[in-house]
Amino acid sequence: MPYPTPETQREMLRTMQTIRRFEERASDDYHAGDIYGVVHCYIGEEAVATGICAALNDDDQIISTHRGHGHCIAKGANLDRMMAELYGREDGYCKGKGGSMHIADFDIGMLGANGIVAGGISIVTGAGLAAQLEGSDRVAVSFFGDGASNAGPFHESLNIAAKWKLPMLYVCENNLHSAQTPASRTLAHEDVAARAAGYGIPGVIVDGNDVFAVYEAASNAVARARAGEGPTLIECKTYRWRKHTERPNQPDQRTQEEIDIWMKRDPIARLVDHLKSQQGQFSDEEWDAMDAAVLKSIEASVVYAKASPFPAPEAALDDLYAD
């Protein structure tokens, strides 16, 4: 498959850098006490959400996990409203009722981050069923971790989606760990993708730190789904740079050696190198300017979040039911 257009490549880079800068800031503000509860960072895995979402149309739908900022940003969510949600403010996506683990934007086909491991897999499979029932050519994408692949909803949903040929992408972000437990201790077979054989669907393994590889796998899977041929399981081998959560006392069993190896495979540096290697395509100055613009948008989102009021306490009673 040819590379995406230079413009798309830059867009991918901008998205990945936005995810990284957003989370660096979210982490700082969390430690400063402006963001509450728990924050899970996606840094190191940016190529997965970016490569997958680059292959989607605006009306395609995705569902996310507890580690959801990257999926939101890659699907085109508004940074201001995301940050305001982390800040617990009225103008946040969920009016301050969700926080980091529960950002959704149904208007852009982002059906929500989810605090329950594997909790979203069947929900988004229902969105795929809806697309099929409607006769639309929408596809639906489930992002989930290696840990989630061991849970029941993964298996129930893949079986149904395969049997009914639902227009689905199941994207496993295998970052080799679930919380403190290495995947080597929980996966019966080291490749989650191998399970696809049991459902008679393609199981594809890609370098999850290579945005082009992810994009290519996604494009193939999207084409298959739109053609009515059913779901694909894509396993992206990747790694999170930071601990499982940003909690100050968050334990981490991983070795520095392992972390160092993966940080050398930085998906963003790889894309920058690629762009720079294209004669005259991308200069240091352009990269600096892009990063500065990204940082500016993040800063603006914090300004927006801080300017947004906290919800009125009584708003806790709003939105229990739809009218």
Partner: peptide, 26 residues
Amino acid sequence: ESRVRATPIAESALTGMAIGAASSGF
């Protein structure tokens, strides 16, 4: 059979799929 689906015995998946389909206008 398309509108009235006999499903695998996977009540968890059905319950969740209903949520996703409902959010898509069904």
